[in-house]
Lab assay of single mutants.
Amino acid sequence: KNAAQIVDEALNQGITLFVADNRLQYETSRDNIPEELLNEWKYYRQDLIDFLQQLD
């Protein structure tokens, strides 16, 4: 998997990933985040941060 796929997957589930103060953050109206997504975000944290910062 790559960062773009993970960001896309999150968006499809109503979750927006973004970077604030060099930390990976998310916004969602969901009550909870599936644990497998959280684990994936932790595992790919630096890739996601790098990818999202390139988009800014």
Results as ranks from 00 to 15, higher is better:
12 N>V: 13
48 L>P: 00
46 Q>N: 10
23 R>S: 13
50 D>I: 11
13 Q>F: 13
43 Y>M: 14
27 E>G: 07
2 N>W: 08
24 L>F: 04
45 R>E: 15
37 L>W: 08
22 N>F: 07
44 Y>Q: 03
51 F>D: 00
17 L>W: 02
43 Y>L: 14
56 D>R: 10
38 L>E: 06
53 Q>H: 09
20 A>D: 09
13 Q>V: 08
50 D>A: 14
7 V>Q: 03
42 K>H: 14
23 R>L: 14
8 D>C: 15
30 R>Q: 08
18 F>E: 03
5 Q>G: 05
46 Q>A: 11
24 L>H: 00
4 A>V: 05
38 L>F: 09
33 I>R: 00
15 I>E: 01
30 R>F: 06
42 K>T: 14
4 A>D: 06
26 Y>G: 02
38 L>G: 03
53 Q>D: 06
7 V>S: 02
8 D>M: 15
45 R>H: 11
27 E>D: 10
14 G>D: 05
8 D>A: 15
44 Y>M: 05
35 E>P: 11
47 D>C: 07
38 L>K: 07
23 R>Q: 15
7 V>D: 01
20 A>M: 12
24 L>N: 01
9 E>D: 08
33 I>F: 05
1 K>Y: 04
51 F>A: 02
20 A>T: 11
2 N>I: 09
39 N>F: 11
40 E>V: 08
44 Y>R: 07
21 D>G: 08
15 I>W: 03
5 Q>S: 07
25 Q>P: 01
18 F>H: 06
25 Q>S: 09
37 L>I: 06
22 N>M: 08
35 E>S: 10
29 S>A: 12
41 W>D: 00
29 S>Q: 13
25 Q>M: 15
28 T>Q: 03
34 P>G: 06
41 W>F: 09
41 W>S: 00
39 N>V: 10
25 Q>A: 08
8 D>V: 13
41 W>V: 04
53 Q>S: 14
46 Q>V: 08
48 L>T: 00
12 N>A: 15
39 N>G: 07
30 R>K: 09
31 D>K: 10
29 S>H: 11
19 V>C: 06
40 E>K: 08
54 Q>V: 09
21 D>S: 06
2 N>V: 08
54 Q>R: 14
38 L>A: 05
12 N>L: 14
10 A>K: 00
3 A>R: 02
53 Q>L: 15
37 L>F: 07
10 A>H: 02
37 L>E: 01
36 E>F: 09
39 N>Y: 11
30 R>N: 10
47 D>E: 15
55 L>Q: 14
10 A>V: 02
22 N>D: 11
13 Q>G: 05
44 Y>L: 03
42 K>I: 14
22 N>T: 05
26 Y>M: 05
27 E>T: 14
24 L>I: 07
45 R>A: 13
4 A>F: 07
52 L>G: 00
23 R>F: 09
10 A>N: 02
48 L>K: 00
2 N>T: 15
52 L>K: 00
54 Q>W: 10
34 P>W: 03
